[in-house]
């Protein structure tokens, strides 16, 4: 514990793993590492011990730009009343197929 105070904390990295089924990389968690190489190695050890994926991305947490929770209404409310953007909005006459 002697070193924890005088050593700067290692940067935090966000880890994304792509499974083998053609899906996108998905955020799985985070970890600390000194550099990108170490982050990748640790991500592999920590997040893919059970065949979880075939590809790993690591991104410095400080590089992630996120929306502000207080902007939620401003950003996402306008989409709420536009149900006509969904196929279920439309009535299909009975018997019509492939629509």
């Amino acid at each position: 514990m002697s070193d924890s105070s005088d050593r700067a904390a290692w940067p935090l990295w966000e880890v994304f793993v792509r499974s083998g089924h053609g899906l996108s990389h998905k955020h799985v968690g985070s970890l600390h590492a000194t550099d990108a190489t170490m982050a990748l190695q640790n991500a592999r050890d920590v997040y893919t011990r059970r065949n979880e994926g075939v590809s790993v991305w690591v991104v410095k947490s400080s590089d992630v730009v996120a929306s502000d929770p207080s902007d939620r209404e401003l950003l996402f409310a306008p989409a709420r009343d536009k149900t006509f953007r969904h196929p279920t909005y439309y009535t299909v006459p009975e018997g019509v197929k492939h629509l």
């Binding site: 070193d3 050593r7 290692w10 000194t34 550099d35 170490m38």
Partner: peptide, 22 residues
């Protein structure tokens, strides 16, 4: 505590290596 102290040189080396590379 022993494990943490014994691992100090590894953490220091990793930090030094990353700084050198940067």
């Amino acid at each position: 505590r022993e494990a943490h102290d014994d691992g100090a040189w590894v953490r220091d080396a990793a930090t030094a290596h990353a700084e050198k590379r940067a």
